[in-house]
Computed example of a mutant assay.
Amino acid sequence: MKHVALILCLWCSGAYAQSAADAASQAARSLETASVQLDKADSARDRVAALTEVVRAYEDGLSAMRDGLRKAAIRETELNRKLAAQEQEVAQLLGVLTALGGRAQPQTLLHPEGPLGTARSGMLLATVTPALAQQATALRNDLEEVTALRQIQQSAANTLEQGLSGVQSARTALSKAIADRTDLPRRFTEDAVRTAILIAATETLDGFASGLSQITEDEVPQNLPRVANRKGTLALPARGTVLRGAGQADAAGVKRPGIVLATEPRAIVITPTAATIRYNGPLLDYGLVTILEPQSDLLIVLAGLSEVYGRAGEVIPEGSPVGLMGGNVPDSNTLLSPTVEQNGERGGVLRSETLYIEVREGDAPVDPLTWFATDKG
């Protein structure tokens, strides 16, 4: 991250840049921390947990860096448009300032009508000159800010590329570490034949959820801490924004009892609490689905993943990765474009993937936002 010092220096060159300095600094620190953690992850006692933290650190750092850089790109575009619109006015201003000279004083200018005319012109110029100087100062500040913003983007492009490469390496290492993991306790063994029969006979998520207890073998009692006292405080399973609330219709008019979270491509999805994996795999039209059971009569359904981790019956600790979202990570040029859409039905380019989250108490779904802490926006 050798360009960080230059980035922060340039951030401080103007009022707008100063307002984003803290965010840029935090982004740089997050990416530095993630890079160091990735180097140390191989020797960690719990490599899966270490790599999960690395991926999340990269996600946080990249998100902050992208937001800052895109704001810089937008600001540069605004200033360029402003300067272009003032092109004729700027040319006239430069002409007047050139005619006056850098040190011209009103009393040194002679008027053809003699002393009285000279005095009147001096009074007029004494009024006009400060205004011209103020315009020149404003123009100079705009030009300096454009230059600083452009240098920020050019210098940060390499940092962004390194971050994108680092998070991809961390995700690959995490997938391998999970595949090699053998130390998780198992609460039951999944009966593959019964599972296939249940899926074939299921037409709704309700029906599948109610039949989960029928697809297990050698199940032992659950021994996980109760989570009822944490209701309303659980972290969302992935970084993102709530796109639709429970019961809100989607573009096709379909209403579902869960919420839809807009996430960035390849975002990591974790369990918000210790839980048993009740099911992992494709289901109906939900795509890849993970169903977690934190305690008896409570299920958390996560649907729409591109990859799922773990096996049914495993008991995983809080914060464990359960999968990755799909999509293609945009390149740095796309991420820096000021025209990238951020809002809309699918959350725009930066948050183009959607994670469906449903919470079921007993046999009935409840609004997930009664369990998760979120700004709801």
Rank of each mutant, 00 (worst) to 15 (best):
residue 233 T to V: 10
residue 220 V to H: 13
residue 306 S to Q: 11
residue 296 S to P: 06
residue 304 G to W: 05
residue 291 I to C: 03
residue 249 A to I: 04
residue 260 V to K: 04
residue 224 L to P: 05
residue 174 L to W: 00
residue 287 G to A: 12
residue 186 R to N: 08
residue 245 G to W: 07
residue 263 T to F: 03
residue 284 L to I: 05
residue 208 F to W: 14
residue 267 A to Q: 11
residue 234 L to C: 15
residue 301 V to E: 07
residue 255 K to D: 06
residue 199 I to C: 08
residue 232 G to A: 12
residue 307 E to Q: 12
residue 302 L to T: 04
residue 304 G to F: 05
residue 238 A to W: 00
residue 281 G to C: 12
residue 270 I to D: 12
residue 241 T to W: 02
residue 245 G to N: 05
residue 246 A to F: 08
residue 287 G to I: 13
residue 224 L to A: 04
residue 198 L to F: 09
residue 276 T to S: 12
residue 192 A to F: 03
residue 276 T to C: 07
residue 250 D to L: 03
residue 273 T to I: 08
residue 213 S to V: 08
residue 294 P to I: 10
residue 183 D to Q: 00
residue 218 D to S: 09
residue 296 S to L: 13
residue 301 V to F: 13
residue 300 I to Y: 10
residue 303 A to E: 09
residue 282 P to V: 08
residue 232 G to L: 12
residue 302 L to A: 05
residue 232 G to I: 13
residue 242 V to K: 00
residue 231 K to S: 11
residue 193 V to T: 14
residue 289 V to N: 04
residue 219 E to D: 13
residue 256 R to P: 05
residue 228 A to K: 15
residue 260 V to E: 05
residue 172 T to W: 04
residue 265 P to C: 00
residue 289 V to L: 09
residue 282 P to G: 09
residue 304 G to E: 06
residue 262 A to D: 02
residue 184 L to H: 00
residue 253 G to T: 03
residue 269 V to S: 06
residue 255 K to S: 14
residue 202 T to N: 10
residue 269 V to L: 06
residue 200 A to I: 10
residue 259 I to W: 10
residue 296 S to F: 09
residue 174 L to D: 00
residue 275 A to Y: 03
residue 204 T to K: 08
residue 290 T to M: 07
residue 272 P to E: 08
residue 252 A to W: 06
residue 277 I to D: 03
residue 190 E to R: 14
residue 200 A to Q: 15
residue 171 R to A: 02
residue 171 R to V: 00
residue 246 A to K: 05
residue 195 T to Q: 15
residue 295 Q to P: 02
residue 285 D to N: 15
residue 249 A to P: 01
residue 250 D to T: 02
residue 262 A to M: 00
residue 253 G to L: 01
residue 244 R to K: 04
residue 253 G to S: 02
residue 243 L to P: 01
residue 198 L to H: 13
residue 259 I to E: 02
residue 302 L to C: 08
residue 186 R to M: 13
residue 295 Q to W: 04
residue 221 P to Y: 07
residue 233 T to D: 14
residue 213 S to M: 06
residue 249 A to D: 06
residue 194 R to Q: 15
residue 285 D to T: 14
residue 283 L to V: 15
residue 205 L to V: 11
residue 210 S to C: 06
residue 202 T to R: 09
residue 299 L to T: 07
residue 249 A to Y: 03
residue 231 K to P: 07
residue 180 D to F: 00
residue 173 A to R: 11
residue 199 I to Y: 04
residue 196 A to Y: 10
residue 291 I to Q: 02
residue 225 P to S: 13
residue 179 A to G: 02
